[in-house]
Simulated assay, not measured.
Amino acid sequence: MDLALLRTFVTVHRAGSFTRAAALLGLSQPAVTSQIRHLEQQLGRPLFLRKARGVTPTTVGDELAHKIAPHLDALTAITEADDDADDRSAPRTLHLAGPPEFTSLRALPALAALIPHGLALRATFGSAEEILAGLAAGHHDLAITTARPRGGLLSATALCDEEHVLVASPRWAARLGGPAVLHARGVSALRDVPVVEVHESLPLVTRYWTAVFDTEPAVTGTVVVADLRAVLACVTAGAGLAVLPRYLCADALDTGEIVALLDPPVPPLRTYFLVVRTGTLGLPHIARTHEWLLRAAVDW
């Protein structure tokens, strides 16, 4: 069976669209359509269901992709590794995707040390769903996400855990009467405190309330802003309480700009994962970046 047909098939499967796959492969959309049709004729089974926007793999298509994608990626890795051996001085560009705060404050500063050694970086921010879809489609080389992907097309390695802290300004903390009062009264003590969050669904507050108070929050967001750094700024200014990663607010806690309202014996944690397309760790620039981030995360 023609490897070019299989490579086109895997690219369409990851991209979810003949048009996007054509752009990734440097082919015309009719050429991609023709190759997929030819492969389907060889197999005697449909591989995709055509829809108004893009395509959806059939069960046969999904099964084939999971079987062959790692092997095709491994062949690509071998080929590109040979190219690297021919030109060690050529900088390699790594396309990294991750959540904006963690990527900006943790990953990118750690990777700065690799820049003088031939690594170029392109960073993209997004939600976990957007990041994993982009990685599967070939738009990124390496992703950082709080969601562990399923299936065999993507491979995940645990990177680090982040601790979540319930914080507010000193003025709000004094109003609440301190941790002892909060421990005694429980979540009811927080009922009248404004909440600052990154989304209307209150993802961080909900996780904290469930883990620490064993209940769902009966509150709504007073300030909703889609960046944890902005959430921290609002809390520091006295807008209300928030749940933040400790790495993000450690300096503000140390200086007393904000206060931890509770110190639970088992604080809520969230795990970050390093995710690649299966087989691509054979590429030296991806493998080196992956290893470097794992080493840096030991101190996170």
Results as ranks from 00 to 15, higher is better:
residue 1 M to R: 08
residue 2 D to L: 10
residue 18 F to L: 15
residue 23 A to V: 15
residue 24 L to S: 15
residue 31 A to V: 10
residue 32 V to G: 01
residue 40 E to G: 02
residue 43 L to H: 03
residue 45 R to G: 02
residue 50 R to Y: 09
residue 56 T to H: 10
residue 56 T to Y: 09
residue 59 T to W: 07
residue 61 G to E: 03
residue 62 D to N: 12
residue 64 L to P: 00
residue 65 A to S: 10
residue 71 H to T: 11
residue 72 L to P: 04
residue 74 A to T: 12
residue 79 T to H: 07
residue 82 D to G: 01
residue 87 D to V: 02
residue 94 L to R: 00
residue 94 L to W: 00
residue 97 A to V: 10
residue 100 P to L: 05
residue 103 T to V: 07
residue 107 A to V: 15
residue 110 A to T: 11
residue 111 L to G: 06
residue 113 A to G: 07
residue 115 I to F: 06
residue 119 L to Q: 12
residue 120 A to R: 15
residue 120 A to K: 14
residue 122 R to V: 13
residue 124 T to E: 12
residue 124 T to L: 09
residue 128 A to V: 00
residue 130 E to C: 01
residue 135 L to K: 02
residue 135 L to S: 02
residue 136 A to W: 01
residue 139 H to A: 14
residue 143 A to Q: 00
residue 145 T to Q: 02
residue 147 A to M: 05
residue 147 A to H: 08
residue 147 A to S: 06
residue 148 R to W: 01
residue 150 R to W: 03
residue 152 G to A: 13
residue 153 L to H: 01
residue 153 L to D: 03
residue 155 S to T: 15
residue 155 S to I: 04
residue 156 A to Y: 02
residue 156 A to K: 03
residue 159 L to G: 06
residue 161 D to M: 06
residue 163 E to H: 09
residue 165 V to Y: 07
residue 168 A to Q: 02
residue 170 P to F: 05
residue 170 P to A: 08
residue 172 W to D: 05
residue 177 G to N: 08
residue 180 A to G: 05
residue 182 L to V: 14
residue 188 S to D: 13
residue 189 A to G: 07
residue 189 A to R: 10
residue 194 P to S: 03
residue 194 P to G: 03
residue 196 V to E: 03
residue 197 E to L: 00
residue 204 L to E: 10
residue 206 T to R: 11
residue 207 R to C: 07
residue 211 A to L: 02
residue 216 E to G: 04
residue 216 E to I: 09
residue 218 A to Q: 11
residue 227 D to Y: 04
residue 230 A to C: 08
residue 236 T to L: 00
residue 238 G to C: 12
residue 240 G to R: 12
residue 243 V to E: 14
residue 248 L to T: 13
residue 252 A to M: 13
residue 256 G to F: 08
residue 258 I to K: 06
residue 258 I to T: 11
residue 260 A to G: 11
residue 276 V to G: 01
residue 277 R to A: 03
residue 282 G to V: 08
residue 287 A to K: 09
residue 288 R to L: 13
residue 292 W to D: 12
residue 294 L to N: 09
residue 295 R to F: 13
residue 296 A to K: 10
residue 299 D to C: 03
